[in-house]
């Protein structure tokens, strides 16, 4: 993680004579890995290049200044962040339960956690409507008791995003919990720490890299969420129209505007993630 590997001299690179005698095996690039790696990178990056090439650069700034765009961007960032916070609050304990507590049907529960990953997001949105909608099982009660309806509200956007993004967090944190050395928890117990203290002061710091990675994945997924959001929360500028929804609708009439919006979303998210990463890497 320190990134200082690059300064190591390449084997056989110092003395010219070393080249004639057999080079060290470790010095050869394994093409079996490098070739697919480069191909994979190209596969991931080329569509982005396509967007960049087709972008109408001349009108970019002007579009950026449009209040609707800024509003959608703000809504996207706020709702993705709140959704990630909600996922952390619920997902970390869930991951802990899956990783640390033996209970009957645990494998089934673990499989259920990944349902939102497999479910087409639009179906996820319909499912949310059936439960949390105005006539939904829970939604009906919410409206009758608290006068709260989730669909067509920003809270609904957050619910939809959290639903789709939480598995990323849970899976990542559960993996970190399984990889963590449990004997540290035992050591803490022998020092008199209650289970909650053990979790808070030992387990959580130990799995922090996994939690951060999961939160980043979760946030990115929430930011790009489209299907469940538009189905459950609808699409109305200012309250529920996030960037992906704006992009989709722009695509109907003005593909160029859609490209600009996508690039804005992309640039902002990359900037935020890169900033976060530096902070976390720099942390002691």
């Amino acid at each position: 993680m320190s990134g200082s590997q690059g300064s190591r001299p390449a084997p056989g690179g110092g003395a010219g004579a070393a080249r004639t005698g057999g080079r060290e095996v470790s010095g050869r690039l394994p093409w079996m890995l490098v070739a697919p790696a480069v191909l994979g990178l190209a596969f991931l990056v080329l569509p982005l290049a396509g967007l960049l090439i087709r972008a109408p650069w001349s009108t970019l700034l002007q579009r950026l200044a449009e209040p609707q765009v800024l509003e959608a961007l703000r809504l996207s960032l706020v709702s993705a962040t709140v959704a990630t916070a909600a996922c952390l609050l619920l997902g970390v304990p869930l991951a802990w339960l899956l990783a640390r507590v033996e209970f009957p049907g645990r494998r089934l529960v673990r499989a259920l956690v990944t349902v939102p990953l497999v479910l087409p997001p639009v179906v996820g949105g319909v499912a949310l409507l059936l439960v949390l909608g105005r006539r939904g099982l829970v939604g009906q009660w919410l409206e009758a008791t608290f006068g709260v309806t989730l669909p067509f509200t920003t809270a609904g956007v957050i619910v939809a995003e959290a639903f789709v993004a939480m598995p990323f967090l849970v899976i990542s944190v559960e993996g970190a919990l399984r990889a963590a050395d449990r004997r540290f928890e035992e050591a803490a117990a022998t020092l008199g720490a209650s289970r909650w203290t053990v979790f808070r002061r030992v387990t959580l710091p130990l799995i922090m890299p996994g939690v951060v990675a999961g939160a980043v994945l979760c946030w990115a997924r929430a930011l790009g969420e489209f299907g469940a959001t538009i189905t459950f929360a609808g699409n109305f500028p200012g309250t529920t129209q996030t960037m992906p929804l704006a992009v989709y609708l722009a695509l109907e009439t003005e593909p160029e505007a859609a490209i600009v919006l996508s690039l804005v979303l992309l640039a902002v998210s990359v900037a935020i993630l890169a900033g976060l990463r530096d902070r976390w890497v720099a942390a002691p």
């Binding site: 004997r183 540290f184 050591a187 022998t190 030992v202 130990l206 922090m208």
Partner: peptide
């Protein structure tokens, strides 16, 4: 009080 074989000092 317990001293473990590889000490298990909390790394953080």
């Amino acid at each position: 009080g317990m001293v473990f074989q590889d000490y298990l000092l909390f790394p953080h």
